[in-house]
Amino acid sequence: MARAGGITNAVNVGIAVQADWENREFISHISLNVRRLFEFLVQFEATTKSKLASLNEKLDTLERRLELLEVQVSTASANPALFS
């Protein structure tokens, strides 16, 4: 025996369901876009990190080269007599 059926107030429920679909369209739209926003931020962070890392690499190289130059200059300037 199927006793399960029987939504008590079918018309009202139907109307409510209809309205619910429409409201949820709004909600899912908003939530999806918020998620897109988050995703953007995450991706932005990731790419920015990469870019910073490559910048860091270049700076590192430069720094080391500069260090070398500094040492060379210091050896030269330590005994200026050589250049006079």
């Binding site: 025996m1 199927a2 399960a4 059926g5 029987g6 939504i7 079918a10 429920v13 139907g14 369901v17 209809q18 679909w21 429409e22």
Partner: peptide
């Protein structure tokens, strides 16, 4: 009748007619 009531309940609770 009793079975088709279940069917119509299924429609009521999930149909999106306005779509």
């Amino acid at each position: 009748k009793d079975l088709s009531r279940i069917l119509s309940d299924m429609r009521t609770l999930s149909a999106d007619w306005m779509a």
